[in-house]
């Protein structure tokens, strides 16, 4: 089982990557930052970064304004 943002639970599947998780969760907004078990995953790694069963995934949304 994968935990997303300390809230949502998602069934783990073999070969699951950050990109497949984002697709499954319906994330289409591009201005996000993703961590897996507290480690930042850059955009260019989404397709290849494999998520282990039990991982804690965080998806931060970045909005304009400062």
């Amino acid at each position: 089982m994968i935990t997303v943002n300390n809230r949502d639970k998602l069934e783990w599947k073999k070969g699951m990557t950050v990109q497949t998780l984002l697709d499954e969760m319906g994330y289409s907004y591009s201005l996000i930052t993703v961590t897996v078990d507290g480690i930042l995953v850059n955009d260019n790694e989404y397709d290849d970064f494999q998520i282990e069963d039990g991982a804690d995934v965080t998806v931060f949304h970045l909005a304009h304004g400062g």
Binding site: T33, T35, G38, I39, L40
Partner: peptide, 11 residues
């Protein structure tokens, strides 16, 4: 998460 801390409503 880890060393990243986001303040605000994120939306």
């Amino acid at each position: 998460s880890g060393n990243i801390h986001i303040c605000g409503d994120e939306w």
